[in-house]
Write a protein that binds this DNA or RNA. Sequence first.
DNA 1: CCGCGGGCCTGAGAGC
DNA 2: TGCTCTCAGGCCCGCG
Length: 283
Amino acid sequence: MPELPEVETVRRSLEQQLPEAILRRVQLRSRGLRWPFQKDLEHRLAGAAITCFARRGKYLLLHGDRAETLIVHLGMTGTFTVYDGAVKRPAAHDHVLFVLADGRTLVYNDPRRFGSMELVRTDALPSHPVIGRLGPEPVAEDFDAAVLAESLRGRRCSIKAALLNQHLVAGVGNIYACEALHRARISPRVPAGSLATRTGRPTPRCRRLAPAIKSILERAIAAGGSTLRDFAAPDGAAGAYPSSFRVYGRDGLRCRRNGCDGVIRVFTQQGRSTFVCPRCQRS
DNA sequence: CCGCGGGCCTGAGAGC
DNA sequence: TGCTCTCAGGCCCGCG
């Protein structure tokens, strides 16, 4: 479910709803998510205050006092929900209950358990094996064609696969990779390295793609993300961005680009569905 | 190191 | 109604 815009939507909602969250206690209700929970997680979080809700790529970073940070990944089906008062009867797949000092409860639910939670020392984040190796942040001020070109240089995989590689660009998933490539009029099949640089300058396609990625992600954030089935913000709001999809999930429908009468097609790359307009994404 | 395919889980929806 | 099959926004791991 959650790509960068959905994670950012969750981050903003948590920041707004829990500006001064103090964790009275934390209750784990299963053995773990993608991996078993750290043995001392409940103990280390009890009594901690969350001082800042941050994000890196698709990862939420809950910075606490005590110089520790909870790294959270929502996997495919992870959601946070803020409940008023105590949760007496947790629902199916409610794996973590954060009981807050003000009496409310923040609940992490994840049916497929592809998500993850790890508590680390905050000063160790830059050298974390996953966080430390993430590619550039595509919605950052300084993300541009030159930065993207550097990520793509020498890559022999397709541009679609490159966009899904979190080491090259952090936060883009299957939906927004398809949408960004369509916006930039680039075929998902072209070799990533061929977009990088020519005579020392980012190629025209690269100069279209970098702003296209940023634009798509920013528009999706503004819409509260994309709810396909089960995504919702912690306040329960669904994401409205699917009404803006130009290719994703539109197999057999008309291309939505002005003046293009192509028909959207779907095919498989690296085991993932790629949606493309063969007419306006030719090279 | 790189690229690819399988695997991890559960639930929804389609087809019979 | 109920069964089986396929597929889904994610990432990790092992293989060549």
